[in-house]
Amino acid sequence: MTSEAAARDVVAAYYAAFNAGDSAAMLALVTDDVRHDVNQGAARIGRGKFAEFLAHMDRCYSERLADLVVMAAPGGVHAAARFTVHGSYKATDEGLPEAKGQTYVLDAGAFLEVRDGKVSRVATCYNLNDWIAQVSA
């Protein structure tokens, strides 16, 4: 069992790696069988699928998270994060509006599970319609 403080530390390190653009560090902080529940999409299972997702995101988007708040439930298994995404849309993502370097700011959150000191599940939630409106304006 992970303590609440340890869970918060793992989640904070995960998002610090995100902000540093350090995919290798993010991958080191997830379990081999990590479940990534994508906003408006199908779940991806495993570190390999998560690595593919990170590469795709890096190609299409440049994002930095601000105002990060991390919470953990008693027992340290369940955690949540709230943050503001500041991003730019670098390359057109299939099925979405054309990328022209548009910038956006979104409120977002994530629900995570921690096992053996690593993130074993992450589900990120944001308002896709708000993002589309911002990049289409």
Rank of each mutant, 00 (worst) to 15 (best):
S88F: 05
A43N: 05
T2M: 04
V77W: 14
V11W: 00
H78F: 11
R115V: 10
E63K: 10
A43K: 11
A28C: 05
K118Y: 04
A73M: 11
V85W: 07
D32T: 07
A16L: 11
D22E: 11
A51T: 09
A25M: 06
A51F: 10
T31V: 05
M1L: 08
A123Q: 11
A25T: 14
G75C: 03
D33H: 08
G109R: 06
V11Q: 00
D58C: 04
G101W: 10
G21D: 04
Y89I: 07
L96I: 05
G21F: 11
Q40A: 14
L29Y: 07
L27R: 13
G101R: 10
V38G: 01
D32H: 08
L27I: 15
L29A: 06
L54M: 06
Y89S: 05
G109V: 06
V85Y: 02
F83E: 03
H56G: 12
A20R: 14
A72L: 01
D67E: 15
F83V: 01
V105I: 10
T92W: 08
G95Q: 08
A73E: 14
A7R: 04
G76I: 11
A110F: 00
L29Q: 05
G109I: 05
M26S: 04
V77C: 01
R115C: 06
L29F: 09
A66V: 13
H56P: 00
K90N: 07
E63C: 08
M71D: 12
T103Y: 05
A24F: 07
F18A: 02
S62D: 15
A91V: 09
L96D: 13
E94W: 07
V85R: 04
S136K: 15
L112V: 03
G101N: 07
R64L: 02
T31K: 05
R121I: 04
